[in-house]
Amino acid sequence: MSTAEFEDVMDLDIEGVEASTVHPVGPTEMEARDVSVWFGQRKVLEGVNIVFPKKTVTALIGPSGCGKSTFIRTLNRLHELIPGAALAGSVLYEGKDIYDAAVDPVSIRLQIGMVFQKPNPFPSMTIRGNVLSGLKLSGMKRDNHDDIVEETLTAAGLWNEVKDRLGNAAGDLSGGQQQRLVIARALAVQPHVLLMDEPCSALDPASTLKIEETIRELSKEVTIIIVTHNMQQAVRVSDYTAFFLAEEGTPGHVVEQGATTEIFGNPQEQRTLDYVNGRFG
């Protein structure tokens, strides 16, 4: 048997094992089933199957261009806003397919919040206005706005820095503060799931640390799915990890997934081992 053949067999074997061993304990919040994604004629993601257990943190890692960000956007139906986007498979949230014809994408996005790579506070609103903007934009009714502002800003680790200037423009904050502000904004509508697309990529180490603390704290309440390029960050914040890879000319797919300690400590795949040790990507 040649090496290539051996590896082929190993691939199959390991993926077969994966499906049964990785299935996490505890209730499931979200699940991607055979999700494939196209932009026009180009297939960028193939057969992604991941289970996200309630109140855990799942890290999506992998080199640039492997479809992590695309995948995370399929989880709250932002993907479909891109012209030419297409999708196969299903995404289950609380056991129901969010792509069902009867489902309103607006209500899905309200329950599955998102924090983006670049902080995007609304420039026309104050700090306070930004935190409460989700309530206004979604038409959600919640009382005691002052408490919500304090609670969410505290949860995002920003309260002490801004409590005396809630009426200032959001644009006056630093990049790291803006990112924590948009996390607070996302929390104010009380989402069940929080998607984070490389939330720390534009931040300095101190702000990154604060946001990581925030993520750990939040995971007691909400399910978090985070895309990151930072291996140490994945280890520090996540319970589960999925490793995405797009090999030359092929669509991206999940090479290996499981408990974070396993993926980083005892990966089954050579490619995972190479990637988490910084040998490529």
Partner: peptide, 13 residues
């Protein structure tokens, strides 16, 4: 466009 997707991600119409 960040602002538009940001608002939509908050459950805005």
């Amino acid at each position: 466009d960040d602002l538009r997707t940001g608002a939509l991600a908050l459950g805005s119409t």
